[in-house]
């Protein structure tokens, strides 16, 4: 198990600054997910933690020991790569044993650890196969197996599920969660998929442009996003964002002229509302809208509603609600469900 501390971390490639002044504490035994759009620096940060990239600025320590200049092999961690990085000329068994041979363990110990990992990951029948004879999911299991046999104090995952199809991704996600529950070792997991982040994480770090936008539990990020970026990034279906203004103690939007909101600073605002918080024929404030599109997803239905101003609103209905495209509906919102952000996009606590 490992406790990580990153203080004022920066990474530059020539004149390009990829990560700036990043501060992060990783608690012992937690499953920390780094999430953000492509190019936000999450993989670079993970590689810096792994020791595969130099740290340009700041201090990185594991269990209180500064490891900026410590080679990857001395950091007692293992990493699962997006591409699996299995040695194609070696059997699954040899892939699993390769790292252990460097640790100069006895043959019996190596065999026992390989067998145990194979049992946990249910890859025993595959041990004598070559990676090219495996499916994507099996390869991913082997890659994870190669990590766990070394019994490191820190696991790193670099978008490990992004090469898998949707069904397999869900299955592997469940297996990873079960593995974490079993091992309870510190894990840092990079993904651009916020569903993976929400379902796996003890805490999530949302990154954008090399900076931390918010750190928190999935519930904190969902219910109290720190800014518009986090509000928009976390949550599927996507949050509704409605431009608004607050003047002389009254909040209004183009479609909701009187909103029961008080105590806000004068000026432009953005009001955000989760699709499941939108109501029909109810709420503190109502507006007429026209159903543009109905997306039936089985257990849920997403209803896209156009308001008179042209503002689009997403409504999360249960099961097979009866809305049809072209139908006129009364949309309602409750002030208590609104997330309010100022002109700079920062959350205003109410």
């Amino acid at each position: 198990m490992a406790q990580l501390s990153l203080k004022h971390i920066g990474k530059t490639y020539g004149a390009v600054e990829v990560i700036r002044d990043l501060n992060l504490e990783v608690v012992d035994g937690e499953f920390l997910v780094l999430v953000g759009p492509s190019g936000c620096g999450k993989s670079t940060l993970l590689r810096m933690i792994a020791g595969l990239e130099d740290i340009s600025e700041g201090t990185f320590s594991i269990d209180g020991r500064v490891v900026n200049d410590l080679p990857a092999s001395k950091r007692d961690l293992s990493m699962v790569f997006q591409s699996y990085a299995l040695y194609p000329h070696m059997s699954v068994r040899k892939n699993l044993a390769f790292g252990l041979q460097n640790m100069r363990l006895h043959r019996a110990e190596i065999d026992s650890r390989v067998a145990e990992a194979a049992r946990i990951l249910q890859i025993e029948p595959l041990l004598d196969r070559k990676p090219r004879q495996l499916s994507g999911g099996q390869k991913q299991r082997v890659a994870i197996g190669r990590s766990i046999v070394r019994e490191p104090k820190l696991f790193l995952f670099d978008e490990p599920l992004s090469n898998l199809d949707a069904e397999l991704r869900v299955q592997m996600r469940v297996e990873l969660a079960a593995l974490y529950e079993r091992l309870k070792t510190t894990m840092i997991y990079v993904t651009h998929d916020q569903v993976e982040a929400m379902t796996l994480a003890s805490r999530i770090v949302v990154l954008r442009g090399g900076k931390v936008e918010q750190v928190g539990t999935p519930v904190e990020l969902y219910t109290r996003p720190a800014n518009l970026f986090v509000a928009g990034f976390i949550g599927s279906p996507k949050i509704n964002m409605i431009p608004a203004s607050y003047e002389n103690g009254a909040a209004r939007t183009a479609d909701f002229p009187t909103l029961p909101l008080t105590g806000l600073p004068n000026g432009p605002l953005t009001l955000c509302l989760r699709p499941e918080a939108v109501t029909l024929d109810g709420g503190d404030c109502q507006a007429q809208g026209r159903v543009k599109l109905v997306e039936y997803l089985g257990a849920d239905t997403l209803v896209h509603i156009d308001l008179p101003s042209g503002q689009s609103l997403l409504f999360h209905a249960n099961g097979r609600d009866a809305q049809k495209a072209g139908q006129t509906v009364t949309v309602g919102i409750n002030a208590a469900d609104l997330h309010v952000f100022d002109a700079s996009g920062n959350r205003i606590e109410r």
């Binding site: 092999s73 001395k74 961690l77 990085a85 390769f98 460097n102 070394r150």
Partner: peptide, 18 residues
């Protein structure tokens, strides 16, 4: 040769000659 094979080996503490 994919670079990540070497990176995986590096993390595993594989010496260069190996």
């Amino acid at each position: 040769i994919p670079r990540d094979l070497y990176e995986a080996a590096e993390i595993d503490g594989t010496p260069k000659w190996r």
